[in-house]
Nucleic acid binder design. Structure first.
Lengths: 208, 208
DNA sequence: CTAGAATGCGAGCGTTTACTCACATTGCCA
DNA sequence: TGGCAATGTGAGTAAACGCTCGCATTCTAG
């Protein structure tokens, strides 16, 4: 155990056949992770669940942590692409509506494969993956700070960077904790309303 | 591996000698965890670092996860006892000051063994430990909700429970993320100020 | 002082599991 | 069609590591 060194794929899938294999393996990884947890995930088990030989798995993933890493990367990309695709549209809206839209967006992002999301955040040791998370985080931060700065005249705020830090932390935590501790809250409009209230009052926006 | 079942100590230390052993082992666990990470932590290594035989370790900790679990419990207790001890005093203060005090308290709590805190939150799979965390969380939530309810007349808020959820999530996340991503921010009064602003505006309290 | 309890010891057992490798099969291109 | 590259296979290897157990040492109570 813990022999892992390299985390990049050892071989790129070139033909359609092998691309399918890679996909199947990643899907199986997600299934096994949800069903057995991180400790219960073994490469042999994943191969079996994928209906692929263990050898094939190791053609494309040099070790277990690369396997899980690839899955995390995919999941994070699924979540952020959802947000990014809508964000430009949202940025055009009046501020009060933009706030609500962003909150709803984040909630929807957390509803993408929630089971997997839970296992990934609860159980998977974040060694080495911290870099990727920080990156996403920095992206979020920059976008929010930019939005705040560009609309500064309609807001009652100080340093956009500091405000962005507080806001991003708060909103991320609210959706995240709701997803983990009380998933039903994600459907509860009262949570969205309350979060909107918090953000609007903080930024000094009239209720919309 | 993954043979763990019981998580309670197999034997209570009765004499001073064995109580010292247990302490030494827990300290060594913390050191090893910080130095090698969760994956690099082995029971043999801990025993060696503690200057204790592996057999002795297993006298008091039935398995690896109980060992780490005990450490988490201790750390969480250290953090919460700090908060609880001051909270009654804080509850007496005028609201504007109470807010600042609570924020400072949380920051101080996150400064208890920050290295260990980091490893614990970043790396240790939370399987089974979720219960304890939820418990702490529920306690926090109840206290904040209670405080809000009792001072409701001076605040511009709706359902105290919902507000408490938003507040606790936000404040926890801000200190936690500052601790993880930018420890120097914890010393930066601007962060405290900004967080105060957020909370005060949200609750409708005049700046203090 | 002594007996029995508590504690300490650590070599090594047994299992788990990541990963290899020699070989088979399939697809691609000339 | 032949030949080479890409892909697939899975039994087997080696090492890591959690944990046991039989025995030694230290404490405590009577």
């Amino acid at each position: 155990m813990q022999r892992q060194v390299r985390t990049t794929p050892r071989k790129r899938p070139r033909q359609a056949r092998s691309r399918a294999t890679v996909d199947t393996v990643l899907e199986a990884t997600a299934r096994v992770l949800v069903k057995r947890g991180f400790d219960g995930l073994t490469t042999n088990l994943v191969a079996e669940a994928a209906g692929v030989s263990i050898g094939s798995l190791y053609q494309y993933f040099p070790n277990k942590s690369a396997l899980v890493g690839a899955l995390i990367e995919k999941h994070v990309e699924d979540m952020t692409s959802l947000v990014l695709s809508e964000l430009t549209r949202v940025a055009q809206l009046p501020m009060a509506e933009a706030v609500r839209s962003v909150i709803e967006l984040m909630i929807r992002a957390h509803a993408v494969e929630p089971e997997l999301h839970r296992v990934l955040t609860e159980q998977v040791p974040r060694v080495g993956r911290m870099a990727k998370l920080r990156e996403i985080d920095a992206l979020n931060h920059r976008m929010v700070a930019g939005l705040l700065a560009s609309r500064r005249h309609e807001l009652a705020i100080g340093d956009p960077d500091m405000v962005a830090f507080v806001l991003v932390s708060a909103m991320e935590a609210i959706t995240h904790r709701a997803a983990l501790f009380a998933p039903e809250l994600l459907r509860d409009p009262r949570l969205i309303d309350e979060t909107c209230t918090m953000v609007r009052r903080y930024l000094g926006i009239a209720d919309g």
